[in-house]
């Protein structure tokens, strides 16, 4: 974008209080004001996009390199594509992404089953370690689970009985 006011240095008082010491970014930033030149630096060669890469609409391009670990696919991929129509400042970007993450978990289980593999949730959750170091928590969780299930069952039982009556 071009600076419309080309003569800004002629504005009365321009720069009279400029103080290079007043730089709260020191020492994190070795200020050279490089970025005043805009997006014009010498970029590394562009990594070819051999898989689908979604990019933030707050930039014009893909970064010169990027990861290719898990390209969008399936229903979660559709939701992610939708999310990327919105900027990083928008809940319409992040909430669908979280939803896509949850859908992706179910897709992951289906994928496992398709490959004839039943996910070992106990092992994946590292519950062996909890069993070894924190049995109390396991019993608490089982206790809470039992309480919840019996609560729900009790409620349904009561509901059915009252409906009958």
């Amino acid at each position: 974008m071009e600076n419309i006011n080309k003569d800004y240095m002629q504005i009365e008082g321009w720069g009279v209080d400029a103080d290079p010491e007043n730089d709260p970014t020191y020492p994190m930033k070795h200020r050279t004001n490089e970025e005043h030149k805009g997006y014009h630096w010498e970029r590394s060669e562009q990594q070819p996009a051999l898989v689908e890469i979604l990019h933030s609409n707050e930039r014009p391009n893909l970064s010169a390199v990027f990861g290719t670990s898990a390209p969008p696919k399936g229903l979660s991929g559709m939701i992610r594509r939708y999310a990327f129509r919105y900027s990083e400042g928008s809940f319409a970007h992040w909430i669908p992404l979280i939803m896509a993450d949850r859908v992706n978990v179910i897709e992951g289980i289906i994928d496992d089953l398709k490959r004839g593999r039943f996910p070992n949730i106990w092992a994946e959750k590292g519950l062996k370690a909890r069993w070894k170091y924190d049995k109390k928590k396991i019993f608490q969780n089982i206790g809470a689970g039992t309480l919840l299930i019996s609560g729900v069952a009790g409620f349904l039982f009561w509901k059915i009985n009252t409906i009958k009556a």
């Binding site: 070795h30 490089e34 010498e42 970029r43 590394s44 893909l62 970064s63 390199v65």
Partner: peptide, 23 residues
């Protein structure tokens, strides 16, 4: 990358050429 405006000023945690998904 070591070459973008941010890397050049030592902001290596804020490189502009390593993440397409978020700025």
């Amino acid at each position: 990358c070591g070459k973008c405006a941010f890397c050049k000023q030592g902001l290596y945690g804020n490189c502009h050429e390593s993440n397409p998904e978020a700025t």
